[in-house]
Amino acid sequence: MSLTSSVAGNTRVIAVNVERIDAAMAIQFKEDMRSRTEGGPERVVLDLSRVEFIDSSGLGAIVASMKQMGGGRRLDLAGLTPMVDKVFRLTRMDTVFNLFATLDEALSASSE
């Protein structure tokens, strides 16, 4: 599986276990995210620390993953590596997610 998930307090943590979220991976990623986020805590943190590369298909799949979670629920992103961070900043999609440098920071942040 490309994803593993666990629950920490009132947050579901989903770790991505692949190096690339790219065009070859995007549809699978979105479907795996759907099954991992059905029900459960309102807040989901996506741990991207093992992901070294993302393309526009992968970025679109993360946006779609947030949208399919349904209203009121939040998808936060943690552990962005340099290239992933760059794609979010260049497209300004960093403005629609809460980004945390590490998973620990995401978990210690208060979930409004």
Binding site: S56, L59, G60, V63, A64, V87, R92, T95, V96
Partner: peptide, 12 residues
């Protein structure tokens, strides 16, 4: 890109 529209493509 208009981030607030939550686009799923058109970034390329």
């Amino acid at each position: 890109i208009v981030p607030a529209d939550l686009p799923e493509g058109g970034f390329g």
